[in-house]
Amino acid sequence: MTLTLDNLSQNKESSLTQALRQIQQLNSRILELEQQHQDYVQKQQNLIPAIAEICISPIQEVEALRILIHRGESECRRYLRSVLVKQRQTS
Rank of each mutant, 00 (worst) to 15 (best):
H37A: 06
R66S: 10
S74R: 11
L65T: 00
D39A: 12
L20W: 02
M1F: 04
L8E: 13
L5V: 06
H70R: 15
P58H: 05
E53K: 11
S82A: 08
T90N: 09
Q25K: 14
R71F: 09
Q36T: 04
L47C: 05
Q87R: 10
S57Q: 07
I48S: 00
E73M: 02
L80E: 03
V62A: 05
D39L: 15
I48N: 00
P58T: 08
Q60N: 04
I48Q: 03
Q89T: 14
L65R: 13
S91T: 10
Q24A: 13
S15M: 14
S82E: 15
L5T: 10
Q18L: 15
I69V: 07
S9T: 11
L26Y: 07
V85G: 00
P49R: 11
R77G: 01
C76A: 15
P58V: 06
V83R: 05
E13W: 05
S74L: 13
L20C: 03
R77A: 06
A50K: 14
L20S: 11
R78W: 04
K86W: 03
L65W: 04
I30F: 02
A52C: 09
N7S: 09
R81A: 07
I23P: 01
Q22R: 13
Q87G: 01
R29V: 03
E61N: 05
L80G: 01
E32T: 11
I54Q: 05
V41Q: 12
I69M: 00
D6W: 07
G72W: 05
H37D: 01
I69H: 08
S82C: 03
P49A: 11
Q36N: 11
R66I: 01
L8R: 13
Q18I: 11
S91H: 09
E63Y: 00
V85T: 12
K43T: 05
D39Q: 15
C55G: 04
H70D: 12
N27F: 03
Y40Q: 12
N11R: 15
Q18P: 01
C55N: 03
L3M: 07
N7L: 14
Q22G: 02
D6Y: 08
S91M: 14
S9N: 12
H70S: 11
Y40G: 00
K43A: 13
Q18V: 08
L26F: 09
L33V: 02
R78Q: 15
K43Y: 05
E13S: 10
E73Q: 10
V85Q: 10
I48T: 06
T4S: 05
V41P: 02
D39H: 10
I56V: 12
I54A: 07
Q44W: 02
L80I: 06
E13N: 10
K12A: 08
H37C: 00
T90A: 14
C76K: 03
I30H: 00
P49I: 09
L33W: 01
C76E: 02
Q35K: 15
R77V: 13
T2G: 03
I67D: 01
N27R: 12
E34A: 07
D39I: 13
L47R: 05
Y79K: 02
I30M: 09
A50W: 08
R81I: 12
E13C: 02
C76V: 07
K12G: 01
Y40T: 05
L33M: 06
S9H: 09
Q35G: 02
Q24T: 11
E73S: 06
